[in-house]
């Protein structure tokens, strides 16, 4: 990772709102994120935290009639938030591609695998039909499919879950994009298959010098694969930093609480840590104040900022709100 290189993707104050009953609700708020070339970034958070909305915003996959994007997202010098549909069609698949959670529904059930991979090259390259077919076979072999010719002829329902996700990856890397967004790519898979798919993603990233944004809820997956991590809560990034910083010196109360609630060997017999309360729903998102504050009520209100911003802790480690300075676990206090 060369620090001097210009960043691949920079978002500033990126906001996405959804229209529900003629009212706009913020699903993504003030997202400032930088993705460098050749980097593996993980965005981690629980359901409804806005991580998938972020992916769809960057990919331009939101329905323009019931969503609104503001702020800026610059990808290779291009302002994505101002891009037209035609402009997007030129970079999607070529420079920017995506892998989805459920590969069965993400593949067209009526088209052969070869056609579906071929399609992306047909639109973005000058390769002839036979050249493209050769490349399809090569791609399938690269993602670890043993009999590419046979798989190329098959339909999605004839493949196993792991095979389908390999096909999705082959499709995503077909034009050697600079950035791949993988939205929960292993959630639907068994643990042994998950490990293989993560290895494959990592390999693809290193061999093609692609950057990957991996979106997941699984902290173990993050720890195994990412270079850098952004933790999201209620539409905001609450902490970001290197994978070492996040897992070994987590600062934000949410990050610390999440890590504590993972079942580990050393807490096998104890109760697991439970974060009080619930994630605020989209309609009930507070307009101001720290969104995590209601879930750590024992921390005095004065510890929080009125309008929490990201604070730099050095070495690229950032944390939202000042409450991290005074945060402690109630259970530890009692003991």
């Amino acid at each position: 990772m060369k620090k001097t290189q210009a960043p691949l993707l920079v978002t500033k104050h990126l906001k996405t709102s959804f229209k529900i009953n003629d009212h706009y609700y913020q699903a993504l708020d003030d997202v400032n994120l930088t993705v460098n070339p050749d980097e593996f970034l993980a965005i981690v958070g629980e359901s409804g935290c806005g991580k998938s909305t972020f992916a769809n915003t960057i990919m331009g996959l939101l329905d323009e009639h019931d969503s609104k994007v503001s702020g800026s997202a610059v990808f290779e010098g291009q302002e994505l938030t101002k891009l037209t549909e035609t402009g997007y069609d030129e970079i999607r698949g070529l420079k920017l591609s995506m892998i989805f959670q459920d590969p069965l529904s993400a593949l067209n059930p009526l088209k052969r695998i070869a056609n579906q991979i071929d399609e992306v090259m047909a639109y973005h390259t000058d390769l002839s039909k036979t050249e493209r077919y050769q490349r399809v076979l090569k791609l399938l072999a690269e993602v670890g499919i043993h009999d590419p010719k046979r798989t190329a002829r098959q339909f999605p329902h004839q493949l196993s879950g792991g095979m389908r996700q390999r096909v999705m990856i082959a499709m995503a890397v077909a034009c050697k994009p600079d950035l791949i967004i993988a939205d929960e790519p292993t959630t639907a898979l068994d643990v042994t298959i998950q490990a293989q798919i993560l290895d494959l993603l990592r390999r693809v990233q290193q061999e093609n010098h692609t950057s990957i944004i991996l979106i997941t809820h699984d902290l173990g997956v993050v720890a195994e694969t990412a270079d850098r991590v952004a933790v999201m809560y209620a539409g905001q990034i609450v902490e970001s930093g290197s994978v070492q910083q996040i897992f070994k010196e987590p600062q934000h109360p949410y990050t610390r609480s999440l890590l504590r609630s993972i079942p580990q060997i050393d807490n096998a017999t104890d109760d697991l840590y439970v974060i009080q309360g619930n994630v605020p729903s989209l309609q009930k998102m507070p307009a101001a104040g720290d969104r995590f504050a209601p879930r750590i009520p024992w921390i005095p209100a004065s510890a929080h900022e009125d309008l929490p911003v990201m604070h730099d802790l050095g070495d690229g480690h950032q944390v939202r709100c000042t409450c991290y300075r005074q945060f402690y676990f109630k259970e530890d206090q009692r003991a």
């Binding site: 990919m59 069609d89 030129e90 591609s97 995506m98 989805f100 992306v120």
Partner: peptide, 20 residues
């Protein structure tokens, strides 16, 4: 989801209608 995939491949909407 497969139309979303097609979109993410950069296929213009009118072609997505035709082919998918």
């Amino acid at each position: 989801a497969y139309v979303k995939t097609a979109k993410s491949k950069g296929i213009p909407m009118k072609d997505i209608y035709r082919h998918h």
